[in-house]
Every structure is written in structure tokens, then in C-alpha cells.
Write a protein that binds this DNA or RNA. Sequence first.
DNA 1: ATCTGCCAAAATGTATGCATGAGCGCCAGC
DNA 2: GCTGGCGCTCATGCATACATTTTGGCAGAT
Lengths: 251, 251
Amino acid sequence: MASQTTAKTHTMRALVELRKRIIDGDIPGGTRLFEVALAEDLQISRTPVREAMSRLAEEGLLERARSGGFLVRSFAYADVIDTIELRGVLEGTAARLAAERGVPEAKLKEIGAIVQKLDLCIGETPDDVDFAAYSELNSDFHEALAALPGSATLERELDRAKRLPFASPSAFLPDNTQLSKFRRSLHAAQDQHREIVTAIHRREGARAEALAREHAQAARRNLEYIFSKDRSLLSSVPGLALVSSDGPDGA
Amino acid sequence: MASQTTAKTHTMRALVELRKRIIDGDIPGGTRLFEVALAEDLQISRTPVREAMSRLAEEGLLERARSGGFLVRSFAYADVIDTIELRGVLEGTAARLAAERGVPEAKLKEIGAIVQKLDLCIGETPDDVDFAAYSELNSDFHEALAALPGSATLERELDRAKRLPFASPSAFLPDNTQLSKFRRSLHAAQDQHREIVTAIHRREGARAEALAREHAQAARRNLEYIFSKDRSLLSSVPGLALVSSDGPDGA
DNA sequence: ATCTGCCAAAATGTATGCATGAGCGCCAGC
DNA sequence: GCTGGCGCTCATGCATACATTTTGGCAGAT
């Protein structure tokens, strides 16, 4: 959960630095990364740069060009939607498997505790919303959910999806967003969180899956709503290169 | 579909060779790969070896060790089951999205043609089964299905799952298997293939998803049946290192 | 007997020089 | 003016020497 202490090796420094630049959107999607340029920039040799790029390709932030070299992966609006869809499906599967296979009571308590802490972040009044803390805990919830069935395969897939530059909901909100407007959504999300945990506890696999999926669909609808009101927001999402595609309403 | 013409660069040679060794099971899961040893073995320097290992990690065949270096990923029986489960879920999603979003008639014709060709591989009499051709076409079917909704995100995930060493059904069959015994299963699978295509054509998303999932579940049950009769088969699956886990009936 | 700490051997991390090949622009010919 | 080939340039592919870290064993103490 906590970030790793600043890595020692050049490779790690380069990895962290490059990842940051990509996620922050400093390097737009589609950009080709040149070993020499980056090496000079980071004051290291080409070797660790190459190594770092290779790892970023594993994470899915870069892709290998046909003729060698790496490109910053660019994501279209459709990719964002599809990724949310995919996460919903995968988390639904996690919920279903957890319900079907059963999980230790202790684990359910743990995840229940997270839900309770989430409640504290979205208090009674609109000004009472601690969005940063909510986001953090929300990640914890979804991570815990992914881990419930004890399937390394599933966890791996969900982990991958979570690393994409636009994975965090906050990536879509401009800095001046009136967060209080989302209070209603957050309360609704909390209701869903609770229902999912309850369904798993009752061993209702199909219901747990449907709920987890619906939870993701709600997030997708929220997103589509935001962009339907202001399409220009699309271009301001860090790390989201809308080079090759159109907005919400298709071609 | 066809294999790429033998790669020219040392990296590519190493990549292909290593991949082969892992998938064939020449290098058991959990084995640590040493750059120097492999470099000597392949008569090249450490650099391309490292590059090849990095790419294999992207493919999911290797994993990075904590202290650097790579390990051959080892898969337990549970991983196989979970992967089939995952593929079912993902293919179900592909089928659902295809039905929901609609696909060009031409694409459906294409996939229908594959199903027809599959019929030819499992003729009327038990001796009439061309298992190799069936496997190849079956892969084509599933690949085409994955591509139907036009979601690069989904295709990418399914592609990944397909590359695992045990992905091919034939990996589980010893060389002397009486293939004719599977004729009935193959016919049943064909019925499912047809139903899936029909459901997509009729735009019945939920049904298409359920069918595709059931198709995978059937494969899983077949597998469990095979191993329930002869647990020793587990250890003979190439690339499947059953080091850390137990058989079908759990811990 | 086991634990601890040190030391040596080996493996990975890094830098750098050279080789190779893809991409691009220039020039000549049509 | 357009097209096709030629060659230059620059980025990556590869090899190798050196630095650093990890690991496993051995010795001594508890």
C-alpha cells in the first residue's frame, strides 16, 4: 500500500521516474522513447534505461515498436470504457468465486472494516468529504475483494488493470472539481460495497457477481455523464492520449 | 496464425528457443535462469539473453525474482482451473459485448465458416477424428470470438491467457490417448460453438455470455474428469510444475 | 548443535564501444 | 514534377569490461 522507499539502483530510479512522467501525462501517448535521450536526461547509461522501459512494457504502460524501441501506449476513450467493463467482469468473478468457494470469516471482517472506514470519509454534510482518503480506502477495498477468492491468476489480471494511467477515478476530475457534487455517488457506491460483502457472506455467488458488476457499470455511467457535459475534459486527463479515437458518442 | 519466419537477431533466437524449452517442459517451473549459463549455452552474450527473458516475463512465462534474475513461472493445478475459469469469463464477456454492440454480418459468416470446418474434423465414425486439425481450428474459433466485439483491451487479456504453457487442451493428453473417446465431447463442444454464434447473431447478450461460459466450464469438467481417473497425469503435463500445490480434490 | 557474522564466489547492475539495420532525404533520371 | 534508388544518419542490437550486490558456506562463539 505504501510506496516503496526510493529505489537504489539506476534501473529503479529510471523506472519510477519514467512511470511518473507517463502517468502524469508529461509524456503523451504515442511518443517514441529514445534510449540515448533518456539516458542523458537521467544521467545514466542506456542499459538501465532499457531495463526500465522493458519493465514498463510489462506493466502495460509502454509497447514495443515493430522495429525495436518503445512507444508510450496511447489509450482512446473506448479503451477506458472497455477497461472499466473488464474490471467489472473480473471483480464480479472475484466476488462470485469468493462466495462459491467461501472465505474465512476473518477476511470478511477485514473487508467490512474497510467499508466502515470509507463511511467516515463521506460524512453527513457535503463539506465533510475527504476525497483523497476515500480514494485510498476505495483502492484498498477493491484490492481486498480481488484477493478474496485466493486466485493468484485473477489477482494478477486485476492488478494489471489497476496500473493503467487512467485507473484512478481522480484522474478524470479536474483540480477545481466541486467534490461535494459526488457525495451522492459515493454514498451509492458505499451501499453497493456493503451489498457485495453481504452477498459473499451469504454465499450468494450469482448475486455477488451481479452486484460487483453493477458497481463498475455505475462508475462507467458516472464517467460517461461527466464527459457528456464537457467533452473537453477528455483532453485534460493525464496519461490519456485521445489520438486515434472519438468521444463518448462514437464515430 | 503461421509462425514467424525464423528471427534473425540473437534476441529473437534466444526468445524462441527459451520459450520452446519452457513450454515443452524442458525447464521445470520454479527454475532460476542464469544469464551467463544461458548465454554460454546459446553462444551469445548476456545482453540478448536478458532481453529475451524480459520479453518472456511480459508473456507471463517467467517472473522476476526479488533480488533480480528470472524464475520459470510454476503453475499449480489450481492455476490451471482458475485460468480456464478466467478464459470462460473473458470469452463470455466477448460474446456478450459482441451481441450487445453488434458485429458486421461478414464477421459472423467468418466465424460460422470456422464452425463448419470444425465439423469436418469430427466425422461420423470414431476413427474419423482429426484432432490436430480440430485443435488448430478450435483456436481459430476462440480467437475470432475474442475479436468480435472489437475491444483491444479484451483481446489483449485473452491473448495473454492463451499463451500459458498449458493453454492448449492437447497439453493434457498423453501421446497414447485414445482420441476417439473424446468424440462425444467434441460434438458437444460443436453444439455449443453453434449456439454461441446464434445467440450473438440474435443479439442475445446474456445468453451468449452464459453459453460461452458454460463452454469453458465443460472444458474444465472434462479436465477434472481426466485427472480424477489418473492423478499421475498431472506430473506429465509439459510446462506444468506441480510443485506447490495439490491435486483436484484440494488440500 | 545452532546461531552469527564474515568472506569469497558468483550473479546481476552498469557503462561503453562497436556493429547493424531501419528511416529519411537528396539527387538523378524519367 | 514525380519517382526511384543511393547513401547518410541515428537508434537499437550486441559484446565486453567493470562495479555492486547477493548468496552460501565456513569458522567461531554461545
